[in-house]
Each structure stands twice: as structure tokens, then as C-alpha cells.
Design a protein around this nucleic acid. Sequence first.
DNA 1: ATAAGGTTTAACCATTTGGTTAACAAAAGT
DNA 2: ACTTTTGTTAACCAAATGGTTAAACCTTAT
Lengths: 203, 203
Amino acid sequence: MTKHKDNQTEEQILEAAQQVFQAKGMDGARMQEIADKANINKAMLHYYYRSKQLLFEAVFKKAFALLAPQLNAILNDDSALEDKIRSFTHNYISFMMKHPYLPNFIIQELNRNPKFIESLKNNVAFPNISKFKTQVEEEVEKGTIVSVNAEQLFINILSLNVFPFVASPLIKAFTNVDDKAYKAMLEDRKTAVSDFIINAIKK
Amino acid sequence: MTKHKDNQTEEQILEAAQQVFQAKGMDGARMQEIADKANINKAMLHYYYRSKQLLFEAVFKKAFALLAPQLNAILNDDSALEDKIRSFTHNYISFMMKHPYLPNFIIQELNRNPKFIESLKNNVAFPNISKFKTQVEEEVEKGTIVSVNAEQLFINILSLNVFPFVASPLIKAFTNVDDKAYKAMLEDRKTAVSDFIINAIKK
DNA sequence: ATAAGGTTTAACCATTTGGTTAACAAAAGT
DNA sequence: ACTTTTGTTAACCAAATGGTTAAACCTTAT
């Protein structure tokens, strides 16, 4: 119990900031609300993070660092394509059901400030398609899957997995489904999406 | 040239508001910026629309009214399922390439305020899945497509078509693709996506 | 004990922001 | 002609907001 209270406060702030920023975005978030949620004085936010912008960036980078390994699972893992699709879909949906704010937060703030992505490319293990592209091209050549463009396939996989988390209010409304039933549908998607994708590319 | 100048001003405001709201969201938008873009005094915004909230709602409803018919094309049209998937994909991507801000704007603001969807259900021709569901179930019974849940299929179609517009900065970064090449990829998707979907459900 | 260093708080500040007001200009109705 | 209604503007206002400050409070090493 020597001097870890500082670390603890810093963590409290980051935790509270994460909640507020992810729920309301950079522009909608209020420093006072973050301070209240962290049970500290507003000046502490500036003591530890200097400015709203820097606090936001800390939250954003932490969120992105959480997402990146998920994506690298499909882009850089060594297993066979079909296995990867199944495990990625299963794992990604499980993961996002625990962090439902994440994808929307990242997409929204990246749209607000596209330059922001440049700093991420340096700081975090940034997902890259090249290895996945080689693998897809090999499988096409071997004849195990139909001829597909690797980028398009990647976009399709990503779309089918991410979109239901980004657009949930809209989809719920169109399909006349409540929260509970929507969760059940997401649960089904852990296998339904991979079946769908594999069906689409299997010869 | 009698008394349409009023209408003209009102339109200028709505047009400017649309640009600013869609680029920066409700919270990030500034009334002064809208006024400047419309080349009018800030007080005029309140003269015609009373408040930021009401101006925003006018913009939002107009945007949603533009989107809804697109979705009704796949949900309520009478043509055969396969034809619908092909024409929807083609038309939706063409349409969104002309209005790239639209889907992100609607999704973002609906996440910010999910209650908002209730008022839409009354005002606009709100897309509904029921007819589409019947059609899918019939085709499954006839044996022309594999056994799929209609809601899941709808989500898949929507995901594959919408997501690339919502997450473009992210996808561009992962696939190392610039603006021009991304547009070409979207162009390809007009047929690639429908092929993908039909492959996935065809027996 | 006490000096030094980091930590925390209440009060304060400058700027921004949505919104209002009162006067003025332009049509439109009589 | 003149009165009323509608459209437009500059100046103004109160509240909110990100950020600062100066003093108080701990903790710890000397």
C-alpha cells in the first residue's frame, strides 16, 4: 500500500473516460461527466492527461489495441482458410458481445478524423492483409475454393461479422426483434456466418 | 418571383445543415457553421427551425426518407429472390457511391439516440421484413435455396452492402488501398457481392 | 521533525455556443 | 397611401465547457 494510489486514480480516469467516450463520442463527451464517473475532481483529468484530446487518444488507442489482435487472427494466423474463417467468426462474435460499444466507437471516430489512422499504423500491431492475400491466392490456384479476390473476401468476412454490432438499432427495428432475441440471433451467427461464407467460396 | 424566396432560404439552410450534420454529427455540428455555409444570419436558423434539435431532426428524416425506399426494394418488391438480390446490390451500391455520408450518419445518430427510431416508424414508410420472410421461407420449402433463416439472410445482405461504406477508412488502411482503388473495388462489388450471396444460398 | 515531492481540491477564467431581442427592410393586403 | 405581415440582421445574453491556479494534503526520504 505504498504508492499505487496514483496508478489507481489514473486507471479510474481511463475506465470512466472509456465509458463516456464510447457512449457519446469525442464531441458528445463532457469532462465533468468523466470526472463524476471516476469520483474525482475535474482538475485531475488534466493533471494526468493534460487535455481532452490526449485523454481521448489514450482511450482510443487502448480500444484499438484490443481490436487489432482479433483481426490479426484471420489475417496472420497459420491455420487453413476454412478453419480460420470458422474460428474467427466464432471468436470475434463472442468477443464483441462482451464489448458491444467497441466497433462503433472505432469506426465513428475514424470517420470523424481519418488522419488519426496514420498514428495507429506506427503505434500498434496494425493488421495487414498481405499474408491473407497470399493464402487466398494459393487456395484458388489449388482449386479448393472458387476464384475470389482476397480483398473482397476479407471485406465480406469483416462485414458479416462487424456490421450487426454497428447497426444493431437499425436491424432490430427492421426485423422486429427485441434485445433478447437479437442476442440469440448473434449467438446463432457464430456458426451461421461461417457456414454462409464457406458455402459461398467452396467449390 | 413572387414569394418563393422564403422557400429558397429554407432550402439553403437544410442543404447546409445536411452537409454539416453529416460530416460532424449532431454534437460536433455548430449552428454558426451551418449559417455561414448557407450564407445567412444565424438567427434565421432559429426563425425557420426553432432549435438545433429540430433542424437536426429535419435533416435526419430527410436522409432516412432517402434510404428507406432502397431497403424496401429488397424487402417488398415482387420479383424472384435471386433477381432481387442482384438488383438490390447493384442499385444500393450505385446509390451509396453518390451519397457516401448517408449510412454512417444514420447509423451513428441512431446509436446515439435509439429512441429516435420510434418516431421514424410512424413518419416514414418504414422498412419491414415480414414479406421478405415469407418469400424466403417459400423458396426454402420449394428447395431452390438451402435452409436459411430469413432474418439472418437479410442481415447478411445488408452487412455486405452497407458495411464497406460505413467502415471505409478502416478497410482502406487494412487493405493498403487508396481512394481511387477503393472506388474500383466498390464498383466490382456491384456484381461480386450478389454472386457471393447467391453462391452461399444456392443448392 | 521537516523539507520536498507528488496528489487533490475548490474556486476561478476565457471562450464557445445555442438561443433571443429589437430594430429594420421588404412584401402583401387593404 | 398605409398598415400588417413576413423576412433579415447585428448585437446581445446566459449557460456550458475545457482548462488553470493557488492553496491544502499526503507520503516519504532525510
